[in-house]
Design a protein around this nucleic acid. Sequence first.
DNA 1: ATTAAAACTTACAGACTTGTTAGTTGACGG
DNA 2: CCGTCAACTAACAAGTCTGTAAGTTTTAAT
Lengths: 222, 222
Amino acid sequence: MNLHTGKFSVKNQIPIPAKAMSDGRKSRRPSKRQAILEAALALYADGGFRGTGLTAIGARAGVTHAAVLYHFESAANLLRAVIEERDRRFNESSADLFTGDALEGLARLPEIAHFNIQHSGLARLHTVLTAENLDPESPAHDWFNQRSRAIHRMFVRLIEKGVDAGELRADLDVDVEASAIIAFMEGAQMQYLLDPDRVDLVSLYENYTHRLIRDLSAGANS
Amino acid sequence: MNLHTGKFSVKNQIPIPAKAMSDGRKSRRPSKRQAILEAALALYADGGFRGTGLTAIGARAGVTHAAVLYHFESAANLLRAVIEERDRRFNESSADLFTGDALEGLARLPEIAHFNIQHSGLARLHTVLTAENLDPESPAHDWFNQRSRAIHRMFVRLIEKGVDAGELRADLDVDVEASAIIAFMEGAQMQYLLDPDRVDLVSLYENYTHRLIRDLSAGANS
DNA sequence: ATTAAAACTTACAGACTTGTTAGTTGACGG
DNA sequence: CCGTCAACTAACAAGTCTGTAAGTTTTAAT
């Protein structure tokens, strides 16, 4: 364990990737960078950041741990790249939930359940890394914090849009409602990951969504 | 409801505590066992199991890491003791939620929010360790799995009691309802731990509880 | 006072961690 | 054909981790 230990704590920001990123010029060799990232995605999902060494990641990608460091410069930096990659993939398939009407967006929440079941590796990665970085001293705490706020804002805006459009009740505490939705999703995820056989994630989401829409819709009894 | 607490064998034989547990006989020296457990409680909450070494735990308790092993035999065994201790404390103050009527029990859920805020160390410990043991290969995965099922059963029974008493709707999918409640609580906890300044855990719980009771009460519109 | 045992400490071992450095490989440009 | 440079590997360093073994201190009972 590290406890504080300066390390990268100087700035919250983690240094930029690496030089080995440019594909503008001709690559002299097929570079294992992507394979390494993929391996890290998978292994962090199982063992978390603290539980997974660069050697294991390299081995899965068919290189030594030095190659991992060559491409990502440090373990913390690799973590950052992994988190961003999972975000990229998740957003790709869920961003459009926030583009339409509020009621429509809420009704489509179960799509997230489907995505997370199909990509349970990514889902576990997210949950494991979030929990691992609850401690403010953790290497990526600030990043997860910001991320959390960003998602919260998206839901707040979605709900506000619904309120403005008259779809949703006007007396809602949007902050609380947004947090509640996120809480349900995160918690359901955790339940499912812990015991996939017992928990039917889709049923959970559908039941929740149905009731959520009924409760938030304009005209619902308080 | 004391869910067991015993150690119904979780197939993986985790050895029994140690000889140094008996207080039936006179202790020859004040033993740091309790101090070590306390230190582990605190440090695991911050850094998780994988992120915390026995040396650090020992240091916090004023002993060497060898003393930790003397009392708990192995790191995995200490983890088990820590989990059980957190459970014991949590149950002590929340077990009676399940003894009364269903509606009363549900209405008192916000008490859990208060407990978790006051004992945020224990709360973080629970969340961090749960996430860390999502992987079936993890040392305490089975234990957390069983624990999760036990809690789920408690809520199932509470809801069933309410249905039988005519307090709650008869057409509920109790399994799903129980999972949803747990999901909300776990997720809310995670949100709060990640960003205590933004998330008002008590408001979240109160809002949720109010709506939950309204939705589940007999006579509510489907 | 001697003995016995709990409750430690010190020292060591082996495995694993991140990270550095120096050397090797191989394809492409000239 | 040859130099260059990306993309590595091998080896090493310094540290951490769990666990073992053997020796020491403290106290209670005889």
